[in-house]
Design a protein around this nucleic acid. Sequence first.
DNA 1: TATTGTTATACTCTATAACTATA
DNA 2: TATAGTTATAGAGTATAACAATA
Lengths: 154, 154
Amino acid sequence: MAENSGFGNDLVWLSVLVQRRYVQICAEHDLTSAQATLLCVIMDEPQGMGELAQALGAAKNALSGLVDRMERRGLVRRETLQHDRRTVTLSATALGKQIVGALYADVDERIAEIAGALPADERHRFAGSVARITAPVRRTSSPVPDADRLGVGD
Amino acid sequence: MAENSGFGNDLVWLSVLVQRRYVQICAEHDLTSAQATLLCVIMDEPQGMGELAQALGAAKNALSGLVDRMERRGLVRRETLQHDRRTVTLSATALGKQIVGALYADVDERIAEIAGALPADERHRFAGSVARITAPVRRTSSPVPDADRLGVGD
DNA sequence: TATTGTTATACTCTATAACTATA
DNA sequence: TATAGTTATAGAGTATAACAATA
């Protein structure tokens, strides 16, 4: 409807603002955004390459290269299960967990600032809507247990 | 539970959902997202490479390659001004304008669906908040931007 | 000399297709 | 044969540094 004309494109611009800042924050932690997102996904629990590819919206072969580079840097570890030796399970190393833990807190604080200009009550409603929209893709728990509560709460 | 805990990260996930769909829509119009975004920026009026690099948040040299590929495909045109022959002004060709026009409408419709699960009133408020946040960078409902500068939060 | 933009080079990310190993 | 992942190859995007042309 007329009132919402441009809403879809506004959403794209919002995502550009978020991504631009996200990439910068990741870089400060020596990660690319793809690496950071992968680490967030396997934070909870190790996952197979297939599931992971689906979660990341990437092809399996693209994921192989990404994992190669991350394994080389000691961020993740490939493990083969006994009962089906075709499958590879990917888990974060201690280093990977440490890095993504710090990143998560930093991202949560600094990305939230993007909505900082909204009045507090509107910001709260906005945060709630974002949470509802993203609920299906968020994992059962936060990638990092008890990440600092920063951002919209006042 | 801490309703707002993780708001910044939720915002990142939202941007991932939006970008994922945006990339797909762009691909259906035979554009990469970088090409599409560039076309949106120069739609209304030609811009110099320097301004453009800043608007896109990219280095000038990175922009050169992007423009090379787009020029090769007939989407944009480089022009040199008389009064300062160092500067290059980039404008969209008729083909580029036609393609981005169709893309814009498609994006507006299909990206908006991401918020489709929200109740109507909440969706309206959400759209309003997104519009306020992106006001400094967003285009108006038709592909006629009046953004004199992009990049809200640096 | 300072500014604008391009080249050279290298790396990450991603896709398609062909391949290997296991089931 | 079907499935899980990897390798081969290619192209897009981006960054740093060196460069050219113009002012």
